[in-house]
Amino acid sequence: MPQLAPVNWLFLFIMFWSLVALGSTLIWWSFKAEYTLPESPSQSSKTQSNLWSW
């Protein structure tokens, strides 16, 4: 394995943990429950169908 300068190791360390944080944030955001109250009973089925969509 070739030797890397300390600046490159620092860059790889920061890039790795930023990608881990971004991935975990996207996973958390996609599985986050949306708690909303429907305005009328006719909209309750519409709200349930869009519960897991972006």
Rank of each mutant, 00 (worst) to 15 (best):
V20S: 04
I14C: 09
S30E: 12
N50P: 00
S30W: 00
S18V: 01
F11E: 00
S24V: 15
L26D: 06
T36S: 13
W28G: 05
W9R: 11
L4D: 14
P2N: 12
Q48A: 05
W29S: 11
M1N: 06
L12C: 09
A33V: 10
Q3E: 08
L4K: 12
I14L: 03
M15S: 13
L22A: 15
N50Q: 04
F31Q: 02
W9E: 04
P6D: 15
M1L: 09
W29A: 08
P6N: 03
Y35P: 05
F16Q: 05
W17K: 06
V7I: 12
Y35E: 12
W17M: 10
K32I: 02
P41K: 01
F11Q: 06
T36E: 14
A5E: 13
Y35M: 07
S53W: 08
L19S: 10
K46M: 09
L22N: 05
S18D: 03
W29N: 06
S18M: 04
Q3I: 06
L22P: 00
L37P: 00
W28N: 02
S24D: 13
W52Q: 07
T47R: 08
L19M: 12
V7L: 09
S40V: 08
W29Q: 07
T25V: 14
W54V: 11
I27F: 11
P2Y: 07
F31C: 14
L51C: 13
F16G: 03
W9V: 04
I14P: 01
Q48V: 07
T47D: 15
L10P: 02
A33I: 08
E34W: 05
F31N: 15
P41I: 10
A5M: 07
Q3F: 01
S49G: 00
Q48E: 06
W17R: 06
S49Q: 05
F16H: 08
T36R: 13
F31E: 03
P2H: 05
P38F: 02
E39P: 01
A21I: 13
S24N: 13
L37Q: 08
S40F: 00
Q48P: 00
I27D: 07
W52C: 09
W54A: 13
Q48D: 01
V20D: 00
Y35Q: 11
T47C: 15
W9P: 01
P2G: 14
T36Q: 14
T36M: 10
W54E: 06
Q48M: 10
Q3M: 07
Q48W: 07
T36D: 13
I27H: 02
L22G: 05
P41W: 08
S40M: 00
S40Q: 05
P38D: 02
L10N: 08
Q43N: 00
L4T: 12
K32S: 11
A33K: 11
S44Q: 13
I27S: 08
I14R: 07
L26N: 03
S53T: 15
S42P: 01
M1E: 04
P2D: 12
A21C: 14
W54R: 06
P6V: 02
S42I: 04
W9Y: 15
P6Y: 02
